[in-house]
Design a protein around this nucleic acid. Sequence first.
DNA 1: ACACACCCTATAGTCTATATAGGGTCAAGC
DNA 2: GCTTGACCCTATATAGACTATAGGGTGTGT
Lengths: 150, 150
Amino acid sequence: MKIGELATRTGCRVVTIRYYEREGLLPEPARSEANYRLYGEVHAERLAFIRHCRALDMTLDEIRALLACHDDPEGTCHQADILIDEHLMHVKARIAQLQELEDALVVLRARCQGQRPAAECGILDALSRPPQEVPSSEDAEHVPGTHPRV
Amino acid sequence: MKIGELATRTGCRVVTIRYYEREGLLPEPARSEANYRLYGEVHAERLAFIRHCRALDMTLDEIRALLACHDDPEGTCHQADILIDEHLMHVKARIAQLQELEDALVVLRARCQGQRPAAECGILDALSRPPQEVPSSEDAEHVPGTHPRV
DNA sequence: ACACACCCTATAGTCTATATAGGGTCAAGC
DNA sequence: GCTTGACCCTATATAGACTATAGGGTGTGT
């Protein structure tokens, strides 16, 4: 199968597949006479694995580690377990952090109900003032915040 | 005050201050004879404003818009209200999405309790399999996911 | 006179892709 | 036989919000 078919089958863009190949997540496939990439079921399964992990917000490095477990069926899956546990903790930490953000934004929003001159706006005023509790992102580490790059 | 002092006072890296200047969020300050940047209270307050907004996970574009309101005290703060409302919705959407992820990860994690050969690992097996519900990131838009770049 | 902390600019790298430019391949229809 | 269009190729640039590095100048203390 050519790259376009693999893309539609897995719901992954063509350019993204080539990107995964460059990143070493997908093995280099055979080539046709016209230098087209030719994929088999093995590739489709591996790409599906990668996309499932991405859907769970894992980084490509985490996925690389899981694929290494997957490629070594003699070894134990202990590494995979640990990785999932850690990732789960990061997701939880990120949720907690975003909930603090949400509370802070609700408080901020309540300071202004609309059509007054900006000079009197409670929101702009509050943002200008000193302290404010700032949730640190230490524990969430590699888990993105409010604005994913889609 | 020189850039290093501004940095320690605001808890912002020196390079980040210069970056904000390049991005047009901070005005270009006066320079000493040795070409050092010289800041006043105005700059410190504006930088604090920016950092508070960043702590609330706003993008630099959102902050630019809030600063524009701030810089036009004749206008109304209606724009600022709308922006905060929208940002709040994005944060809420991202939280909901991450909670779905968390559930999926908990289910995944429960499929394996450790020291078995990777070939039998329920986690690796589940990730290889077809469908899986994948929360879309449509509503969270500009709110990053699980792995922020700190 | 020298060390050291601080400042400057310019450039490249991070991460996970997406977008663009400029070209080659292949089947169908005229 | 020739064009059209869909598909494929590579290489490079762009996004966001910084961080890191190289290579140099400034200013203070000993």
